[in-house]
Structure formats: C-alpha cells, structure tokens
Simulated scan of single mutants.
Amino acid sequence: MKIKAVIFDMDGVLVDSEPVHFQANKSLFAEYSKRYSLTHVKEFTGQRIVEEYAKLQKRWSLPDSVNRLVQKRDQLFKSLIENTLELAPGALELLQFLKKKKVPVGLGTSALSWYIDFVMNRFGLREFFPVIVGSDHVKQGKPHPEVYQKTGRALGVAPESCVVLEDALTGVAAAKAAQMICFAIPGIYTKQLDYSAADKIFPDLVAVKNHLAKLI
C-alpha cells in the first residue's frame, strides 16, 4: 500500500460536529412538529444538506421550500458552532505529522463554502489544505465519487495512492467508487453500522496517525 496523499472528509472526521448537526436538525424540525431522530442521522450522514432536506420536505409534506428550510437550519447551526464546535481528537497532530512528512493533503466534503471557511479560520487549518473541494464545487454529492475524484486530480496523485478518511457510509462508497483507499472512523451515531466496504476501520485519528506512521 503506497500512500502519496491523504484526503479528509470534514464533518465527523476533521471536526467533532455530528452532535451539533443533530441538535440543529432536531430543533428545526420540532418547529414543524416533526421528530428528527438518530434514525435520520444514520440515513443521511454524509449526504449534502440540500439532498437530505429535499427528501424530508417531501416525506413530511412541509410547508416551506427546501431553500427556506436550509436557510433556517443554517441560522440555527451557526449559532451553535460558535461555542461548541471542536476539532476531532488527534486531528491537529495528524495534520502536523503529514505536513512534516510532506504528504499532500486535501479536503473533500459535503459541506458548503461558508462552513468550510468557518472551520479553516476558527482552527487555523488553511495552511494544511492546499486543495479544498466542497459541496459548492461539485454537481453530484456523495456517494457519487465526484468530490474525491476532483480532490485527487487537484492534488496530482493517482487514485490508488490516495487515502480517504471518512465517517459516513456514503463517503466510504464515494471513496471506493473513486478507486481510492478508504479508512473509516465511525461516528458516535453510526458506529454500529456495517463499514466492511472500507479498507480499514479506526476508532479515531490518533489510531490513524499511528497506522500511517508505519506506512509513510
């Protein structure tokens, strides 16, 4: 296994954001007397918010448009992340290790640009990510491989030499469809799901760093 680049997903991998997303979604849909539960988290983790909300808007026959739902949810989410969002354990150490080893790093995420910018600026991570591909930069979201194909091409590394770090089954599917190696880090809400499609499964980024140290 020759690793020449590492591509991070953002939510649930780079930042410990899944509980914040859950709270924002739960609060939003409570306004419509709908219960957003962990079942929905498992169903939609890794998908673009517009795609998730289009399905829920239709399923629940909600009166507001998908765009309006996303706007309201973004307002809730922004108010929450200001005080609660944290880097995932081991994230900074892994990024510093990869930089020291001169391994190219990219970000391939379903997140929108405003949120990516918030994370990069909040935690001072811009220097680690010369290539960033978000939801605004692709036509098709995960599990389609476009986001990882585009990130890999921008890094100038062949797919089979790229490792993708993912927490979502849709992301694992996207990475494998892009012909890349995939290391899964299941989240607190999804750890009981079947991640057998990933090449390896790790409990956190600390374990990922320890493993990569043997390969790079």
Results as ranks from 00 to 15, higher is better:
A177I: 06
D204N: 15
R126I: 11
S61A: 13
I185S: 03
W60K: 00
S161H: 15
T84W: 10
E82F: 02
E31V: 00
A30R: 12
G124K: 01
Q57I: 01
A158C: 05
I132Y: 08
Q149T: 13
F97S: 00
D9P: 08
K100H: 04
A54P: 05
T45K: 14
R122E: 12
A24Y: 06
R122L: 00
Y148V: 03
C162F: 14
A213L: 01
S65L: 08
Y189W: 07
V41H: 02
K102L: 06
P203N: 08
V206C: 06
K78E: 12
V206K: 14
S161D: 15
V157E: 03
G106H: 13
I49W: 02
K4V: 00
I188T: 12
V50Q: 15
F183H: 04
D167L: 07
K214C: 07
R68T: 14
V20T: 08
D199S: 12
V15M: 09
R48Q: 14
K102A: 11
D204C: 12
L193C: 02
G108A: 15
G134R: 05
D11L: 13
A178Q: 05
L212G: 05
A5G: 13
R153K: 15
D204M: 10
I201V: 15
D117L: 04
F183E: 01
F202G: 08
M1V: 07
G124Y: 02
A173N: 10
C182N: 13
V119K: 02
H40D: 10
S79E: 14
A174W: 09
A24F: 03
S27A: 15
R73L: 03
G106L: 12
K102W: 01
L76H: 06
E51W: 05
E166F: 11
A175H: 08
T151M: 05
K2R: 14
V20Y: 02
R59H: 12
M120P: 01
R68I: 12
N25V: 02
I7E: 09
E52R: 13
L94F: 09
I7S: 11
T109L: 08
L94P: 08
G156H: 12
F128K: 01
Y195C: 08
E51Y: 05
Y148E: 09
F29S: 02
T151K: 06
T151H: 10
K42S: 08
P104Y: 02
A207F: 06
P159C: 04
S110V: 09
L212K: 04
A213Q: 14
R35W: 00
K142I: 12
G90S: 06
A178F: 04
D74L: 12
C182T: 10
M10T: 08
L193G: 03
V133K: 11
H21G: 07
N83Y: 07
